[in-house]
């Protein structure tokens, strides 16, 4: 059985500039994939092509081995970055319109609409005009319209980016629930969100896939021991830090904004003993010593070459 979604060699060129520059990936049924990348990485363009709203300049998208068409549209739910509704409609009317356009019969549509509105906490606002909804309510209505026809694949473009902390919390909880039932692709530029709900992560930068893998495999791949050091402001301490950076066991070092030094090392045991011994011998006023592994944030920065 072919995977749920196969994307191969997808390109999109706008006015001579490529926005998506040859991406390929497969997605299995039931997975939750985060499309992670900075602004301008091509996430929205990719999702629009996946939603069938834009034709790729090159490449192809297969859904269960078939090219995407009307039947495919019936099986996807799509939530754009800033969903716009007919403001003169009520929430309920919009959800009914959406479900009927996706091919549901009148009775089934009414039942599903009521259920999905309740799930999104919109049952009290269902009979009010959408024009009067708050931003968080519109986002939830957007999720409701994407879910109402029980799609097999959900495409969500930055579903939490525009929300306040409370709305964000609610949305993440809903997403975690939904991720258990159906296959989801969602884009975000916030790493923490991706970590929270997703199994797989695709890191995009400048239209390309910089890194692709499961959350655990990415962690394992980038599982580099790091030591974080911070010292008091003192001339000899500063000089010592500088000499440290040239040692053979250090792969890479970076001075952070808060004045601490991040050292990527190959052998944590020997590095730790050397550093601690030297610090003791020279009476370096250490403020902080931490040995650990790279956070996903660092993986991301490394992968996109930031």
């Amino acid at each position: 059985m072919p995977p749920l979604l196969q994307v191969s060699g997808l390109y999109k060129v706008f006015h001579g500039q490529s926005s998506v520059d040859g991406i390929s990936f497969d997605m299995e049924q039931g997975r939750c994939v985060a499309l992670l990348g900075p602004n301008g990485a091509g996430k929205t363009t990719t999702l629009r092509m996946l939603a069938g709203l834009m034709n790729p300049s090159r490449g192809r998208i297969l859904f269960e081995g078939n090219p995407i068409g009307d039947n495919y549209r019936r099986q996807i739910g799509y939530l754009p970055q800033a969903p716009a509704f007919y403001n003169w409609m009520t929430g309920e009317e919009y959800i009914l319109l959406a479900s009927r356009l996706s091919g549901m019969g009148g009775k089934a549509a009414a039942g599903h609409a009521a259920a999905v509105l309740e799930r999104m906490g919109l049952q009290d606002a269902a009979r009010r005009r959408i024009g009067g909804y708050s931003g968080g309510m519109k986002q939830r209505l957007g999720l409701a319209q994407a879910l109402v026809h029980s799609p097999r694949l959900l495409l969500l473009d930055e579903p939490v980016s525009a929300l306040d902390p409370i709305g964000r919390r609610e949305m993440m909880e809903l997403l975690r629930d939904i991720g258990k039932e159906t296959s989801v692709i969602f884009s975000t530029h916030v790493l923490h969100d991706a970590e929270e709900v997703c199994d797989d992560i695709i890191m995009m930068n400048k239209g390309r896939i910089a890194e692709h893998g499961t959350l655990t495999s990415l962690r394992a791949k980038y599982n580099r021991p790091v030591i974080i050091l911070r010292v008091e402001e003192a001339e000899e301490a500063r000089l010592w830090l500088e000499t440290l950076q040239t040692r053979s066991f250090i792969l890479e070092s970076r001075l952070e904004a808060d004045g601490s030094l991040l050292l990527k090392v190959d052998d944590i045991a020997s590095a730790r003993s050397v550093i601690l011994r030297e610090a003791a011998e020279r009476a370096i006023p250490l403020l902080r010593f931490e040995a650990g592994t790279l956070s996903l944030e660092d993986v991301f920065m490394e992968a996109v070459g930031g």
Partner: peptide
């Protein structure tokens, strides 16, 4: 321009 087309045309509406 309002963005409502993006939502309805992602559905089977041709």
């Amino acid at each position: 321009e309002g963005g409502t087309a993006e939502l309805v045309l992602a559905r089977p509406l041709t």
